[in-house]
Each structure stands twice: as structure tokens, then as C-alpha cells.
Design a binder for these strands. Structure first.
Lengths: 227, 227
DNA sequence: TAATCCATTACCCTTGTGGGTAATTAAAAT
DNA sequence: ATTTTAATTACCCACAAGGGTAATGGATTA
């Protein structure tokens, strides 16, 4: 028992949901698991945010159809005050734009309310680790909102991506400034080198990244999470 | 036993993976579960697609780093021939572009190869039902590629238009090309206007987006999901 | 010791960039 | 009917970008 407590630490959960019955249902379903515990409950977003700020839960179950401030706004605010808190968006309907809005506003998971309680507990465990989990009914909607392959330039330049030449440490420094929109002159000043040097670095960055200009380099760097 | 077979029908799995050891590992890990069975294995995409067409698995584990045809291409083809097959993208690295490319090309899940075997079995079960599951390490990358709330008009006219001047349709066109790294001259050619026009559009884009140069505009556009 | 890689500097040259200003036309809103 | 907005074109100008080529010193590696 103490072993279990050591091994999997308890996941703290907050519930923001206006229907009392659903709230009770969620609490019971989740508290039935030894490795999680509901530490806060609220029926509206404003009070919910206060409670969350105080209790610092690991995972928040957020209903999207709240009166007053809606769930999307609440999540945006929540991510501002406690960015590490994971959010599971809960809803009874399946409006396409709401799915995308929720996920891009900070939700890590999107569940319909008819989810099996035991499955919900699994999702809570996954989400606590940072997993993104999307209900089967709405998953296609979310996935189809992602930028298409043709627009990420993933397929072309295969030869280039294979023989990928790594950037040097210095070049990474330059790349960071480049992504911020700095000119070669500015980069040179900040790195305390001559413009010639900065230009030289930029040139080799462009070659190594297999791009034609600094805009492509910046975009590629952002998309690949290099910076 | 027959009860179990009735209750949860067996999930048929195909594995496309070039490393023999990994392949064996996956097979063993998954076959250890009573409710699933590996029905096809291949070390390259071309043969894999044939096998999949013949064996019609419920779930395909697809390595992304295949020799020859890469995993992304293979998934696109796979979705053409058997659209209902669910795909789990497997990879050992975590390149941002690849995550988005895989998910938008048909993958229902994205796992890193260091996933716990038992967890992988859970994911297979989820994915067979249509769930979208994304590994914690890459989930933020995928979620941040979704279009932002402001750009889906979900929060109508509230925080959206506050201090932000919206781009015109034409300017959006130009912005798309700009993000691709096109020069003003190239943009002009593709939009069949004069260079002067292209420049004018770029200028107003810079002003409206409150940035100093096209690099910042491109980065901001990518980060905010405007394109 | 020799070879290699990296950071640094420098030059020339062509093309691109971005600011400023301003005119024309068509469409849309008042 | 009048005003506003968007798109288009045009000009000038200072400066930046990126390609090419090449030299130097320092550090690491073979």
C-alpha cells in the first residue's frame, strides 16, 4: 500500500462543471481510484479558476458548455496562471470548431461525457503525463485541422534531410537571433563580432538547413522546434 | 475464454518496421495480449502495403524512418486503399515537422519507441476505437500546430479584434507566399501582379502585424497558426 | 606532425528589402 | 450619392541580403 503510494503518486484533480449530477458522477468515478483524488470542484469558471490557483491540481476536468465565461476562455486564463496544469475538455456535444478551439487553447484531451468512467481514469493518468488524448468521435475533426503535408514541405528535399548536417553551437546562437527577425548587423552587434562573421554564419546556416533564404530558415526552425 | 473472445474481439495488427529487433519486440509485446494479434510484418513500406491490403488489419504500427518510401508517403497510400485502418506512427526521434506531417497524413497516434510495452497495448486498444493518442514529448508540438482560437472566430469579436487590424484576403495570400520564403519578385509573379503591388502588400502586412521585417512576420504567422 | 574543423575577418557584386509618398480604379458601405 | 476601403501601379532611396572566394588563428583529432 505504501509501496503503491510511493510508486504512483496521487494525481490531484479539479472539476469545473455546472451540472451537479455530472459533477458528483465525475468525483465518485475518479475518487474510486487510489492514485487520484478530486481536490476542487466548481460549477462556474470564475470560481473554478480561483480554486485551481489555490489547490494547484495536476489535471483539470473542464466542461465547455459553462454559463457566463465559457470553457475556452477559462482554459486560456488557466494556462496563463498555471501553465503546467493539464486540462481535459469535457463536452456532451461534438461541434467541430469547438474541438479545435479547445485543443489549441490549452486542452490536452477532449472527452465526450458518455465516456466510460474507468476509461476516463485512464485518460486522467495519461494526461497527467502530458499525453494528448482525443475521443474517437471528434478525433478526425481535430486531425483534419492540422496543416497538410504539402504545406509543411516534408516530402521534398528528402536527400537533404537524410544527410542532415548539424549546426555548430555558434550557428545556433545566430539562428536564435535570426528567428527573432534580427538583421545581420544586429546579430553581429549582439554577438560582438563583425558583420562579415554574422553573414558567414548565416550563409552556412542556410546551406546546412537546405533553404534559400533566412525566412525559410526561420520558419523551418520554428516548425521543427529547433529554437 | 470463449467469453473473452466474444466480449472483446481480437484486434488485428500489422507492423511495418525496418529494424528486425524492434519488430520482434513489438510482435512479442503485442501478442502477449489475448485481445490482439499481429497478422502481418514487413521491413519496408512497399511490401508492407501489399500485406496490409491482403490481411486487412485493424491497426498498423508504422515506423517513420523507413528506407526507400518513407512512413509519411506510406501512410498516405495506405489511407487511399484502406481508409478505415487505424495507424500508429512510431519513431525514435521527435522532429516537430514529422509529428505534424504524420498526424495530418493519416496517423491516429504518435508514439516514441521508448514507450512502455504495456502502455503500447493500451494505445493499440484505444486507437482501434478511433482515439487520437499523442506521446507527451511531442504533444505540445502537435497541439501548437492547430489553428489558433482567434483565427477560427470562436470567441467572436472579443479579445480578437482588440488592437489587432485584420489582414485582407489578398494580404493573406501574400502572407502565405511570404512564409514559404518567397521574395517580393516571386510573390508578384505567382499572384500575377507587379512587384510594386507585392511590395505594397508586404508593407501593409508588416504594419498590421506590428513587426519590423518579413522574418518576424513569417515567424509570427507560423506561431499563431495564421497559415 | 599533419589534418581537420570552427570562428573570425575581408572583399566584390547583384539582387532584394522596406520606408515614404501618391495616383488610379473598382467595389462596398453609408 | 458620397465616402470608405482594397487593390493596383509607380517612383525614389538607403541599406541589407546572400553568393562567391579566401585568408587567418586556435583547437581538436588522427
Amino acid at each position: 500500500m505504501s509501496e503503491a503510494l510511493l510508486e504512483k503518486k496521487c494525481i490531484k484533480i479539479a472539476i469545473v462543471e455546472d451540472f451537479k449530477l455530472t459533477r458528483v458522477g465525475l468525483r465518485c468515478a475518479l475518487n474510486a481510484n487510489e492514485d487520484m483524488s478530486v481536490v476542487a470542484e466548481s460549477e462556474d469558471a470564475v470560481e473554478g479558476l480561483k480554486l485551481i490557483e489555490r489547490t494547484k491540481p495536476d489535471v483539470v476536468l473542464m466542461d465547455l458548455g459553462l454559463p457566463g465565461m465559457n470553457g475556452i476562455e477559462a482554459m486560456l486564463k488557466l494556462k496563463e496562471i498555471t501553465p503546467c496544469t493539464k486540462i481535459i475538455a469535457l463536452t456532451s456535444h461534438d461541434r467541430g470548431e469547438e474541438v479545435v478551439a479547445a485543443l489549441s487553447s490549452g486542452a490536452n484531451a477532449y472527452c465526450l461525457k458518455d465516456i466510460d468512467p474507468q476509461k476516463l481514469a485512464d485518460v486522467v493518468r495519461d494526461v497527467a503525463k502530458g499525453v494528448c488524448w482525443i475521443d474517437p468521435v471528434v478525433a478526425p475533426l481535430a486531425l483534419s485541422s492540422l496543416p497538410k503535408v504539402e504545406n509543411i514541405g516534408f516530402l521534398p528535399d528528402k536527400s537533404c534531410n537524410e544527410g542532415r548536417v548539424p549546426l555548430t553551437e555558434r550557428e545556433f546562437e545566430v539562428l536564435k537571433h535570426l528567428v527573432l527577425g534580427k538583421s545581420n548587423t544586429e546579430i553581429a552587434k549582439e554577438l560582438i563580432v563583425s558583420v562579415h562573421t554574422a553573414k558567414a554564419h548565416v550563409c552556412s546556416i542556410l546551406q546546412k538547413m537546405c533553404v534559400n533564404d533566412r525566412v525559410q530558415a526561420a520558419v523551418k526552425a520554428v516548425k521543427e522546434g529547433m529554437v
